[in-house]
């Protein structure tokens, strides 16, 4: 039967053609194709990996940023607090100083006043003494104009003196 009786010629040509096709395609088609596919896959793989890495880095960078911001915020709060403290302190100090100053002024004023008062009192005493002496002098002079009165006075003085 012809169908299952293949010709030797076809077998020969098939060996030749298939063999040549195998060699040529193997060297000039499949080799570069497989190489290129492999390279492309590798590069895609690498790109994906690096994208992953970049994302990871981004994330850590963001975390860092957040941390830095947090730190900055804390720092700011700290500085503000310090400033407020300092302000309060300064105000307190100023108040204190003002108080002291006032106290000092008041004290010195008081002292001055008292000094002045004493001086005035002394002067007044002296003046009063003076006046008293003058009055006494005048009175004495008036009293002494009359004999009787002089005797009487002497008598009074003597009376006053205790001779015991």
């Amino acid at each position: 039967m012809e169908l299952v009786n293949p010709g030797i010629g076809l077998i020969f040509w098939m060996v030749v053609i298939f063999g040549l096709l195998l060699l040529v395609l193997g060297k000039y088609a499949w080799k570069p194709i497989m190489k290129s596919l492999h390279e492309r896959e590798e590069s895609i793989d690498k790109a994906l990996k690096s994208a992953d890495k970049a994302r990871e880095e981004m994330k850590s960078l963001q975390a860092d940023n957040e941390k830095l911001r947090q730190e900055a915020r804390e720092e700011r709060d700290k500085i503000l607090k310090q400033a407020r403290d300092k302000q309060n302190e300064i105000i307190e100090q100023a108040r204190e100083e003002a108080n002291q100053e006032r106290q000092r002024i008041i004290d010195s004023a008081r002292k001055e006043i008292s000094n002045e008062k004493q001086a005035a009192a002394r002067e007044l005493r002296e003046t009063v003494a003076d006046i008293s002496l003058k009055i006494a002098e005048k009175i004495t002079r008036q009293e002494l104009e009359d004999e009787k009165k002089q005797h009487k006075l002497v008598k009074e003085y003597f009376d006053e003196i205790d001779f015991r």
Binding site: L25, P32, I33, S43
Partner: peptide, 24 residues
């Protein structure tokens, strides 16, 4: 058979060339 081989060569050699040019 010859025709098939020639067609195969035309197709795959041109595709291989394309692969070389457009590797990535």
């Amino acid at each position: 058979l010859f025709s098939a081989a020639i067609i195969a060569l035309l197709i795959f050699l041109s595709v291989a060339k394309r692969y070389k040019q457009r590797t990535y």
